[in-house]
C-alpha cells in the first residue's frame, strides 16, 4: 500500500522536466532584470520586480516535490508583503514631493459594476464560507476578499458601513493562537488535532482580517472626501 502511494525516488517525469523548467525560470528572471536595468520610471521598475518574483516561483516549483509546493507559499507571501510596503513608500514619497492635492488612491476609484448592486452580500457570504472551509493562508485570502467586496458594495450603494474597530487586534490575537498551536505541536504532541485547528484557524483569521483592513482603509479614504 505504502509503496504504491509514494514512489521511492522522484518520478522520471519530474527529473526530465527539471532542467527545462529551471531554464525557463532563469530566462524569465533575466528578461525582468534587464528590464529593470534599462527602465527609467520608478513605477515601471516596481512592476518589473514582480516579474522577477514570478521567476523565483518557477525556480522553486521546478523541484516538483510536495516540499517545493509548500515552499512556494512563503516565497509568494514575501513578494506580496514587500510589494505592498514598498508601493506604500513610493506613494508616501511622491506625496511629499508634490506636497498636496493627491489622493490616497491615485486613480479615480469609481466602481460602477453590476455585481456590486445585484447580489454582493451573497457573493461575500459564499467567499467567506469557502474561505473558512479552506482555512490557512489561502482561506484567509479568499475570506478577506469577501470582506472587501462587502465593504465596497455597501459603499457603492451609499449605505453606512458597519464600523469594526480593532480589526488589527483580531489579527494580532490570531497570530498568537497560531504560535500557541505551533508550540503545542512539540510540547504536547498528543493534542495535535487541537494544534492543527489552532494553527489553521489562527492563520485564517489573521490573513482575512489583514485583507479586510484594506477595505477599512478604503472606507476611511471615502469618508474623508
Amino acid at each position: 500500500m505504502v509503496a504504491s502511494v509514494i514512489p521511492q525516488f522522484v518520478p522520471a517525469f519530474y527529473s526530465s522536466m527539471y532542467t527545462t523548467a529551471l531554464y525557463g525560470g532563469l530566462i524569465v528572471a533575466f528578461i525582468g532584470l534587464i528590464g529593470i536595468a534599462m527602465e527609467k520610471r520608478d513605477i515601471q521598475i516596481l512592476i518589473l520586480t514582480d516579474l522577477v518574483g514570478l521567476a523565483m516561483l518557477i525556480v522553486v516549483a521546478a523541484v516538483g516535490t510536495d516540499l517545493s509546493e509548500a515552499l512556494i507559499l512563503p516565497g509568494l507571501v514575501v513578494e506580496l508583503a514587500e510589494i505592498m510596503a514598498i508601493s506604500e513608500i513610493l506613494i508616501s514619497r511622491e506625496m511629499r514631493k508634490v506636497d498636496e492635492g493627491t489622493s490616497f488612491t491615485p486613480m479615480p476609484l469609481k466602481i460602477d459594476m453590476e455585481i456590486m448592486t445585484t447580489a454582493p452580500n451573497f457573493i461575500a457570504l459564499i467567499l467567506i464560507a469557502y474561505g473558512v472551509f479552506l482555512s490557512g493562508f489561502t482561506g484567509g485570502a479568499v475570506a478577506g476578499g469577501g470582506i472587501v467586496i462587502y465593504v465596497l458594495s455597501r459603499k457603492v450603494r451609499g449605505l453606512p458601513i458597519f464600523v469594526l474597530d480593532g480589526v488589527g487586534a483580531i489579527s494580532g490575537i490570531s497570530w498568537c493562537l497560531w504560535i500557541i498551536g505551533f508550540i503545542f505541536f512539540f510540547l504536547l504532541p498528543q493534542y495535535w488535532l487541537l494544534s492543527l485547528f489552532l494553527a489553521a484557524l489562527g492563520l485564517l483569521l489573521k490573513v482575512a482580517s489583514k485583507i479586510g483592513l484594506i477595505g477599512i482603509l478604503m472606507r476611511e479614504e471615502y469618508g474623508r472626501k
Binding site: T49, V52, V60, G75, I86
Partner: peptide, 15 residues
C-alpha cells in the same frame, strides 16, 4: 526594490 529582487536569488538559490 533590491529587497524585492533579492527574493529570486535567496529563495531560488535555496531551491
Amino acid at each position: 526594490l533590491i529587497a524585492m529582487m533579492c527574493g529570486l536569488p535567496l529563495f531560488g538559490g535555496a531551491a
